[in-house]
Amino acid sequence: MGTFFSWLPEDVTANDHAYPWFGLRFGRPFELPYITRPDRVQEVFIGDIPAALWEFVELNNTHDPEGRIYCLEWMRNGVQYGVSWREPGLIHEDIFRFAESIPDAAELFEDLEFPVNVTP
């Protein structure tokens, strides 16, 4: 089970293209590894928690070719967290401050099943 929340600029409209965004996903750890090119992944720290930072390899190449998509992924108390974001429009410092402000979600997954049958 994983959940993905996203944030958009407040003034974004349907006509806007390639606006900055970022998203947070968290859930039970999954077994499949991420796939990336060599030398793209670096170890960073969110506070004292080790995390992986890498430029995201988008499989279908639909994102803004002028922009860059990044991922930050880490584990805490048995929960896997990931933040994705697009530059320009967001800077790494903002993302790290955002990540550091995430409370511990481990308790949430003890007996929680989100609904999956409601589509906007």
């Binding site: 590894p33 090119r37 995390a51 992986a52 390899v57 499989l59 896997q80």
Partner: peptide, 16 residues
């Protein structure tokens, strides 16, 4: 890294 596994390949789009 940080408990997360990565497969590194020169051809991620072809190999995934």
């Amino acid at each position: 890294i940080g408990g997360v596994k990565f497969v590194e390949t020169e051809n991620p789009q072809e190999d995934w």
